[in-house]
Design a binder for these strands. Structure first.
Lengths: 189, 189
DNA sequence: GACGATACGGAACGAGGTTCCGCTTAGCAA
DNA sequence: TTGCTAAGCGGAACCTCGTTCCGTATCGTC
């Protein structure tokens, strides 16, 4: 509840070092083998034992969140700025969704991991927590401006977009961006 | 290549019996635990050893295809009849897609298994082989009638719809049908 | 009833996730 | 500097699951 930087009892130096190494190693492993990269691989890349991975990141979701936290926060922030910069709320939404798709489409397997149920609940929860309010603001602005139909929720939209991105980089014949475009076009009044 | 009912060298009675039992057991296991149900579970339900499962169905895809073959064939057939019965090609497409979504949404995990890459290539190939031509016919008719934009392929559309169905029955807040509706609406000229 | 081909069962192996505990070492205080 | 203690580490061990393989049982026929 309280802030974590001061409230935490200050960890040992090697612990902090290992956490950094693990985040770097996980990022590299995710690029190479997707977010399902074996825990042992990640541990080996970081030069630590598997026990250390689990101590710092009890679930894979924690590790994924750790790796992508900055980008997710940036995405949440971008929703605010794009509303101010775009010509209309709908334009802002389109641009923001574009950014979201870019993010997902370059993370091997992340879109697939985002659906609930596989033990990735924490990951799903984090994304929902950070991005649904951002998306909701854009959607609401569009509805208020009369550009967007009012009967589609932010969570629903984001799950749809996320699902459309599954497998996007595995198959060149499948263009997720195109289908997302159709879906978003369907939001217009 | 030739027909399988006569060309095959006639199998032993226990083999045929076990294949039936396995299809029944798999169907039950899929309902209970999804299409990722452990092979050992399926074998146990059928009262056979795991070796027997693999002898009859070398890959999980073969088993899934075996279980759902009738429904998939019916879906392929439905494309033809719906074109004749519906008021317009677009209406026919909408109805057919509805049927496709119904099918996927009631098969725990099937939509997820359909994406290529996991060792389900055979499953994906079968669905593509049987359903893409069916969908393509509807799409072409709609394009010819000027109702549907001509720049979206059947494979792309079906993958999009399939992806939107992933996880549909896990979360009551997520309505795949609704989003598929948006996507299909986006196909109109 | 006997024989050969067919099919069966399940032990065994490998890969991956997760836990657990004896050992190491950072940090501190005397 | 040295010694102490708790935080932290490593990786063996265990579990689950997919997959293979081969000795054994059974079917169908002569």
């Amino acid at each position: 509840m309280a802030d974590a930087t001061e409230g935490a009892p200050r960890r040992r130096a090697d612990a902090r070092r290992n956490e950094e190494a693990l985040l770097d190693a996980a990022a590299a492993a995710f690029v190479a083998s997707g977010v399902d990269a074996p825990v042992r691989d990640i541990a080996a890349r970081a030069g630590v034992g598997v026990g250390t991975v689990y101590r710092h990141f009890p679930t894979r979701a924690d590790l994924i969140v750790g790796v992508y936290r900055h980008q997710v926060e940036a995405l949440a922030e971008a929703a605010r700025t794009s509303l101010a910069e775009a010509a209309s709320p709908y334009e802002a939404l389109v641009r923001w969704i574009d950014g979201f798709v870019d993010f997902l489409a370059t993370k091997h397997g992340l879109a697939g991991a985002l659906r609930e149920g596989d033990g990735f609940e924490g990951l799903h929860a984090y994304f929902v927590d950070r991005l649904v309010p951002a998306c909701s603001a854009l959607l609401d602005a569009g509805v208020a401006a009369g550009e967007i139909r009012p009967d589609v929720g932010a969570l629903e939209l984001m799950r749809g977009v996320g699902n459309l991105c599954i497998g996007a980089e595995d198959d060149p014949r499948y263009d997720a961006r195109r289908l997302v475009g159709l879906l978003v076009a369907g939001l217009r009044t």
